[in-house]
């Protein structure tokens, strides 16, 4: 990510959209909306330019840019975690909503059971979580020779 000072009052950050999604860039901008004036330009597929101008006079542009980069990482991580946990979140919320209505509860239980069955049984262990650590290590590095 490159940044360039256009003058002493504002900074233009060039962000690679291959690394950060537009949603993460929006979210980072939104966090900074009370501290700075922000403007989005550029090409959606090649390079997104974020112009930042602090609202307070005397604020250090470099500090603001550093904080913005950190926030961008934070938002990208949040997005990744959300993607990974999307299924389980939907299941929990679905169960909570179905439980609130006793008539729909049975129907909901059945729906959730079908969803869980479709996503695979824990006994199949598709991610290999149940494999002991030693076995995993032996597979990767072979058995260690005893001295």
């Amino acid at each position: 990510m490159k940044s360039k000072k256009t003058n002493n009052q504002e900074l233009v950050l060039n962000i690679n959209p291959q690394l950060y999604s537009l949603a993460a860039i929006y979210a980072a901008c939104y966090v900074f909306i009370d501290r700075a004036y922000l403007f989005l330009e550029g090409d959606l597929h090649k390079r997104i330019e974020v112009t930042i101008r602090p609202k307070k006079k005397g604020a250090r542009l470099e500090d603001l840019a550093g904080d913005f980069h950190n926030e961008l990482l934070n938002q990208a991580l949040r997005e990744e975690i959300f993607k990974n946990n999307k299924k389980i979140t939907e299941l929990i919320v679905g169960k909570a909503l179905f439980s609130a209505n006793p008539e729909a509860a049975e129907e909901g239980e059945e729906f959730l059971r079908v969803e869980i069955d479709a996503s695979g049984s824990y006994e199949e262990d598709p991610l290999g979580i149940a494999v002991p650590w030693e076995e995993n290590r032996e597979k990767k590095h072979g058995k260690k020779k005893k001295k």
């Binding site: 929006y26 979210a27 901008c29 939104y30 909306i33 004036y37 922000l38 403007f39 989005l40 101008r53």
Partner: peptide
């Protein structure tokens, strides 16, 4: 600051 305030406002609404 009208340009910048307006742009920030639009960004907030577009988010």
């Amino acid at each position: 600051v009208i340009r910048e305030e307006f742009a920030n406002y639009v960004l907030g609404l577009s988010y």
